[in-house]
Design a protein around this nucleic acid. Structure first.
Lengths: 259, 259
DNA sequence: CGCCTTTTTGACTTAACTCAAGAATGGTGG
DNA sequence: CCACCATTCTTGAGTTAAGTCAAAAAGGCG
């Protein structure tokens, strides 16, 4: 089976390596941005700390760091010691799971406001490999902080449960939506599911990624993913504005998705 | 696409219908078994209440009921009002998700000790349809009881988080294991994943289900599922002792699974 | 025992995989 | 700035696994 890409597991993990911008190839692994002021966080209402009150912040006795990553940067690898929960502040992250034979499958996408590595609160190693698809930032919250807040304030643990729930729902939808039906329908559903970004001229755009990643999300080969995207471009269902940036005809996509 | 079985959504839901054994066709929907004594529960160490202490039980102010179901009985349908969390005491339950076109996909199997319908603590309707594949029993815990215990004792909410985590892990494994690779490998992995039951002569047996359900778990057609099981029977990888009860050659299965 | 459902099998079609080569793209270094 | 290199993407041709439609066989139930 060549359905999924080979695992490259290249380079060092960003965890434990937060000391500054490390440039390798064209990839910036992690750049330290300082200690954020959670109370003033621009996306706090989306984030893990959404419900915290003034008093709760006093319970934080370890630094929360803000780190920024380039596309391709690895947040952590499966099996790495899990010492922090991350809150995504921008960009897009894939969670990858490896099979026995070295092939891989992308099990979820993480978007701004979502948490990454929640399992750190329960066990001492990460379950997936987390890789940035689009550059962005995370707040790195040491697991001791999460544990302490969770013990002391119900406001955090409601948020935690909500996040577990959200991840599970996403996992179920991922299975039914992106792993079911023919390849064309899967691509269409994926495109519909992707975040849209506003452009200068007002057209919503969705940013796509490598055909290999596409294949690993949908459980099809790179070539099949490529062929379908190419075909959609030719038929005008999607319209490439810049490299891998597409304006989508959502109605057409919906009908392709078999809805 | 005919990949998955048509949604029959037949019959009434067991929820709200706990007043006694309802026999329709050959299916017993639900039989009321009485109010269990949690403290003395035989599988309590597996169940949601594993960590509760004597004082905690005093917080339970609504009855927990014990209900038994036959194969094919529907615990609840997707969208039904979610008024209880269930703890599975025996048997096997499938969680089904429906797609826009009416086809279905089985997203998870629930085994004894696992909880069903945890989303009831967060929202007012169930996300899946839950159906018994093998007859068994559940304890039905009103959502108010779970909420109250969760507010009052950290011992429950650790169990709750653990269960969310376990479900998510299972979802991820389900995707990579049962929705990846060719049909033969998927069937092999499913068989390896199924619980084994001891028989009189000591051979571990695994109880299989309809080809339609098999297809809906693996994302293949009923015919493909049937063909592969038939082929495995012929080649001796599995050995049918009774109807849908198989002795498995696990080493052979592992090699088929592409491990 | 006969009816109905599920399973199995067959024949055919088609979607997706495989292998391979050529085109495009982006980065690198002269 | 441009030429070159390494990827990644696209496309083609051939193969194969899985889907489809249909009918026969097997099981289970009344």
């Amino acid at each position: 089976m060549r359905t999924m890409a080979e695992n490259e597991r290249s380079g060092s993990t960003a965890e434990d390596d937060e000391g500054g911008a490390v440039v390798r190839g064209s990839r910036i692994d992690a750049a330290w941005k300082g200690l954020p002021e959670c109370r003033a966080c621009g996306i706090r209402d989306l984030a893990l700390f959404a419900d915290l009150e003034e008093a709760d912040f006093k319970l934080i006795h370890l630094p929360i760091e803000e780190l920024s990553y380039g596309a391709g940067a690895v947040l952590y690898n499966a099996g790495d010691p899990a010492r922090a929960v991350m809150s995504l502040r921008g960009g897009l992250v894939k969670l990858v799971q490896y099979l026995g034979d070295g092939s891989q499958r992308i099990v979820r996408l993480v978007r701004p406001g979502d948490s990454i590595g929640l399992e750190a609160t329960l066990q001492d190693s990460y379950e997936h490999t987390a890789v940035f698809l689009q550059p962005g930032m995370v707040c790195r919250i040491p697991v001791e902080v999460v544990r302490r807040l969770n013990d002391e304030t119900p406001r955090l643990h409601h948020q935690l449960i909500t996040r577990w729930h959200r991840s599970l729902k996403q996992a179920d939808d991922w299975l039914t939506g992106l792993s079911t039906g023919n390849a064309r329908a899967r691509v269409a559903r994926l495109l519909l599911h992707l975040p849209r970004e506003a452009t200068a001229d007002g057209t919503p755009i969705c940013v796509l990624f490598s055909r290999e990643d596409l294949g690993a999300m949908l459980g099809v080969t790179t070539e099949t993913a490529s062929r379908i995207i190419a075909e959609m471009k030719r038929s005008g269902v999607i319209n490439e504005r810049k490299f891998n940036q597409f304006a989508c005809d959502d109605d057409a996509l919906r009908s392709l998705s078999g809805e």
